[in-house]
Amino acid sequence: MKKENIKKPSFLFIGRNSAEGIFSKKNKKLLSDPLDDNNPITVQVLGICSALAITVQLKPAVVMTASVIFVMACSNVIISILRNLIPNRIRIIVFLVVISSLVALVDQFLKAYAYDVSKELSIFIGLIVTNCIVMGRLEAFALGNGVWKSFLDGIGNAIGYGVILILVAFFRELLGSGNLWGMQVVPDFLYESWYVNNGLMLLSPMALITVGVIIWIQRSFNKKLIEKG
């Protein structure tokens, strides 16, 4: 065996490039970028379907966010570990198998430990499989980057997705049913005088409009996102 071929062993490939720290500027950017400049929902407009479907109440939105964080972090790490082993021709199939197994695991755990939530989310947990963000990050990032970076990228994108989800759910639950996290927050005397819940907020179109308003607000603050024309 030639000596040049033996590489320095490094744990999970972290710090192979020893000049770069674990939380270097570049790595931090992986986490912060998807929150604003490159948000999967408001900028890339991915994963909209689930943003419409499960944002009627805050609780399912939070559970969905947690599940997506888990699935994205794990799938990014797994694909990144295997990135030099996966046959190129069947890589999309491998992605699908990895994502759907992770989703199946989440589903099983929810059914055992958080039965009510799993009933509420029912098919939407399964639909994480079809969430374009997960697949997109695997193809665009994990396949070409190291484990630690892929992990950060997964977490960052999942949080970027989750923040919007929770924000939309917050307004829809508050204005639509006067509750937050299932508990009444609009005081009774308001209902007695003039206030009425806006039932329209509970219907899917209002999720789309809420997302639209968020995009509008984000773009008026973040000049980078405004197209030149």
Partner: peptide, 10 residues
């Protein structure tokens, strides 16, 4: 990594 055998094995 592009051979059929490797794909099936994987």
């Amino acid at each position: 990594r592009d051979s059929n055998f490797y794909t099936f094995l994987f």
